[in-house]
Amino acid sequence: MNRILVIAEHDQGHLKLATFAAAGFAQKVCAAAGGTFDFLLLGSGLAAAAEGLRRSGAAAVLVADSTELTQPLADRCAQVIADTVRARAATLVVAATSTFSKDILPRAAALLDAGMLSDVIDVRREGDDLTFRRVMFAGNVIATVQLDGPIKCVAVRSAAFAAPAATEALSPVEAVAVDAAALPKFAEFISRETKVSARPDATEARIIVSGGRALKNAADFERLVGGLADQLGAAVGSSRALVDSGITPNSLQIGQTGKVVAPDLYFALGISGAIQHMAGMKDTKVIAAINKDPDAPIFEIADYGLVADVYEAVPELMQKLKT
């Protein structure tokens, strides 16, 4: 029997949709091999977020509420996760892949002497064991792996798992006692430089408009990539080249080392298609690419390719989509 702990992710109390994909993974494990799952929510002022987790089939919504957890610092969060895993005798700890889970889950795993798998895209039962599939080598290799040991940690790709169907029954909410004085406090939070954006997050959007090297400056990026995105209610994304040259902020980077996305539609505007970029978006349902270079590698994976200068094609696209 699996006892699964799903680490819920939120941004100042707003739940990340990827959390429900992690719950979907937990449900898949329970369906295949038996067991139950709990959510664990860490932070402060979490009543609304906890409420939002009650209709996903969890045995309980555990809430670790402490002002020491207001900022998601790895030293404190990993300790609370490890303590909760021990207290609940959890056998499997799950989170959706994000910079939050990448920071805290490996630390919690090591505190528990547990092995961990990143970027898991599938799970099935094999005898008494679970077999996982995960992505490596910038998306070019899929590994089939098992984890030894009494506790296993996995970070799952949210695009690979469907959220649980909403239940009538409400999961009970239980407080987790946090000994704030005993938490490690190596790091101190100073500030966060977040650009307030009305646009959806790329990991949660149905359509992403993404720009690459062809965009010459931030104003052009905003006008063409941002303009098309706003017209479609889409998120914006960017290749590494634009982040490196300071045209776009790092939070927009899609790729092996940035965000991994799988929307219904991905517009690749002036993106050549380095393997590192394609690792972050090739599970998209439909890729539409516009690039002036007919030999750009992006055309090898695009469903629809248009050889054109983005400076001409995108304004035309925006104009014609209005009708």
Binding site: G139, I142, Q146, I301, L306
Partner: peptide, 21 residues
């Protein structure tokens, strides 16, 4: 971690080229 097998992901096929917006 025990790696049982490595394989290639199902590749994406190139789609079609369109000529106009």
């Amino acid at each position: 971690t025990r790696v049982l097998k490595l394989e290639r992901p199902a590749g994406r096929k190139a789609g079609v080229r369109v000529k106009t917006v």
